[in-house]
């Protein structure tokens, strides 16, 4: 099974997991409010923490040591219970992992895929750097990677794409659990193309560096909040769509210079050019902390 074909069930699993993770929590099990990240954000002062008697130790959650949380203060009878912790309006750090899909109607890409769809694994992280009211801005760094293979007239081909982009993510928060965002970014794309050519008996390669520019917009939703005294831990689901563009690179296949099995003075096999341009989307799950 090729990496590309293995990617689909992995993506499906990821999406199913995301869907499962999107299941609402049963009523009544409200996690305690956890102080969110964001030192510079004005937040309500937390209730005073008093040492709790050992008999009223908190239930461990997610492996957190209950002793890390100060027990709820038990005062004499008649003291008021503390109010629950409020979610931070904006996540501080976020990491997401998911898949990116693109519709690539490019002749060069046809050498490596029977379909005009390019799926990639995607990983990005963001750090909120500005928050004012319902708007926040984060810096986002994204890494997409994929591998594709196919045959052309019976000859095996493979293509590995590695894309790294950086850009601001501008968010509009509707609630602490929900925001929409736009993320323009730019970066580079590395393409590594290989053709197993029979007459030479060797693998011919055509590698290139491409300029990559993305413009995506999406929505993220907080689906699980495990924040506690130690800090914020929220799980998110994000979905975005947009357009990705790269420059083009020539597909001129040659054997490696140190490939002793290849004939001497092999003329480059010109099979056109490769560019990854087209609309795309991402689906991911992430966490903020």
């Amino acid at each position: 099974m090729t990496p590309h074909t293995a990617l689909r069930p992995a993506l499906a699993l990821l999406l199913v997991s995301a869907a499962a993770a999107a299941q609402p929590e049963p009523e009544g099990q409200q996690p305690p409010a956890v102080d969110s990240a964001g030192d510079d954000a004005p937040v309500a002062p937390p209730p005073a923490a008093e040492p709790a008697p050992a008999a009223a130790a908190a239930t461990p959650v997610f492996g957190f040591d209950a002793t890390a949380y100060p027990p709820a203060a038990v005062s004499d009878r008649g003291a008021e219970p503390k109010p629950p912790r409020e979610k931070p309006p904006v996540p501080r750090w976020q990491v997401f992992a998911g898949m990116r899909g693109a519709f690539v109607d490019d002749g060069g890409y046809n050498l490596f895929s029977e379909r005009d769809f390019a799926g990639q694994g995607s990983l990005w992280g963001a750090r909120t750097v500005y928050h004012s009211g319902d708007v926040s801005i984060a810096g986002a760094l994204a890494f997409d990677a994929s591998a594709h293979d196919s045959t052309i007239r019976g000859e095996r081909t493979s293509l590995a794409l590695y894309r790294l982009t950086l850009g601001p993510e501008v968010r509009l928060h509707f609630a602490p659990e929900l925001y929409v965002y736009a993320r323009p970014s730019a970066g580079v794309l590395r393409s590594v193309a290989t053709l197993d050519e029979s007459t030479t008996g060797s693998s011919l390669h055509s590698n290139g560096w491409l300029v990559a520019i993305d413009a995506f917009a999406g929505v993220a939703a907080d689906v699980l909040d495990l924040s506690g005294e130690r800090g914020e831990l929220r799980f998110w689901v994000a979905a975005e769509g947009g357009y990705g563009w790269t420059s083009a690179t020539d597909l001129r296949f040659l054997p490696d210079e140190d490939d002793a099995s290849a004939p001497n003075r092999v003329a480059a096999l010109d099979l056109g050019s490769l560019a990854q341009r087209g609309p795309g989307f991402r689906l991911a799950i992430g966490a903020s902390f």
Binding site: R153, E155, E197, T199, T200, R265, A267, L271
Partner: peptide, 8 residues
Amino acid sequence: RFYPGLMF
């Protein structure tokens, strides 16, 4: 000079 992949 060697020319591979003529059928492409």
